[in-house]
């Protein structure tokens, strides 16, 4: 069951007035994943999410949710799905509780007390009877998640869930998502342009740029490389390059403010330091550069490198 695909997108296309917004996107989300859907602003993340949820039509392609094609069997496909699209919106004149109650009435099989339960899950039990118009953005995000959880979903789709929140609010939402994933066994599909956030909570990511998928895989897979980037702080740049260029494991040298940067095959950094020292190159520091999702993303989206 753990490897079941709960969301599958195949050859998805969407255009508005001749402009391609989504161009052949394919991706799959497995049960239990916290899937980060990354992309710069305007890359087509929200459009893709709206298509997954049947809010906008598909020009071409197919979307399967929980084994049901959304175009052929939307009601079955959406039954065990919860979602918040962009900033959560509510009926402003009602309380948070009333908003949830209204939505709960649209399901035929919700257990009684579910509204109170989800309010408690998101920490809004004490403010549930307040009017939504008096809620802060953080509270609205929480209420949006509560609404998405009403139907005891197997998949929750969140579009930029921490947008507009302060750092504390962002942390709380992240923790809540991870907790729900673990405790309730919910699969999350989360769009974001905040790489640090995705790196912290997602097990798998898909990267979108100008409507095309550039990469997909687990964070570990995407960052896995057989080399590391190293910066050597030295005043003798030329001598250092002369020594290292013959090793065979160091390459792509470039000058930096404090020395030189290069790529070194994994497992050779100790030998690199020994060689430099034995050759009389003054070495102040050898600093490995961390390969973060952020670096990877920037390289991918700015360089246009096709990985997947």
């Amino acid at each position: 069951m753990k490897n079941d695909v709960v969301l599958r997108i195949e050859n998805l296309h969407k255009s508005y007035k001749e402009k391609k917004i989504i161009d052949g996107v394919e991706l799959s989300v497995k049960r239990g994943d916290i899937y980060g859907f990354l992309g710069p602003n305007g890359s087509g993340k929200t459009t893709t999410i709206r298509m997954i949820l049947g809010l906008i039509s598909l020009d071409q392609g197919s979307i399967t949710l929980n084994g049901h094609d959304i175009q052929k069997d939307f009601k079955k496909a959406i039954r065990k799905v919860g979602a918040v699209v962009e900033t959560p919106k509510f009926f402003q004149s009602y309380s948070g509780y009333k908003n949830l109650k209204l939505m709960a009435q649209l399901y035929s099989d919700l257990p009684s007390g579910r509204v109170e339960e989800v309010l408690e899950m998101v920490g809004l039990k004490n403010r549930g009877r307040d009017k939504v118009s008096n809620y802060s953005l953080g509270m609205k995000q929480r209420l949006g998640i509560a609404m998405a959880l009403l139907n005891q979903p197997e998949v929750v789709i969140l579009d930029e869930p921490t947008n507009g929140l302060d750092p504390q609010g962002m942390k709380e939402i992240r923790e809540m998502i991870v907790q729900l994933s673990l405790e309730q066994d919910i699969t999350f599909f989360i769009s974001s342009h905040l790489l640090h956030e995705v790196e912290q909570m997602c097990s798998k990511v898909g990267i979108l740029k100008e409507g095309r998928k550039l990469a997909e895989g687990s964070v570990e897979e995407l960052l896995k490389k057989d080399y590391e980037a190293v910066e050597v702080y030295t005043s003798s740049r030329e001598k250092a390059v002369k020594v290292l260029i013959t090793t065979g494991y160091a390459r792509e040298f470039s000058s930096t403010e404090r020395g030189i940067r290069m790529k070194v095959d994994k497992g050779h950094s100790e030998d690199l330091i020994k060689r430099l020292v034995h050759s009389g190159v003054p070495v102040q520091y050898v600093v490995p550069e961390n390969q973060s999702l952020e670096n990877y993303f920037i390289k991918l989206t700015q360089g246009g490198e096709q990985i997947a």
Binding site: G54, F74, I78, R79, Q92, L106
Partner: peptide
């Protein structure tokens, strides 16, 4: 315009 039209459309309702 208020974004609330999508709320029922995200439920199992055609």
């Amino acid at each position: 315009r208020d974004g609330t039209l999508k709320l029922p459309l995200l439920r199992p309702i055609s």
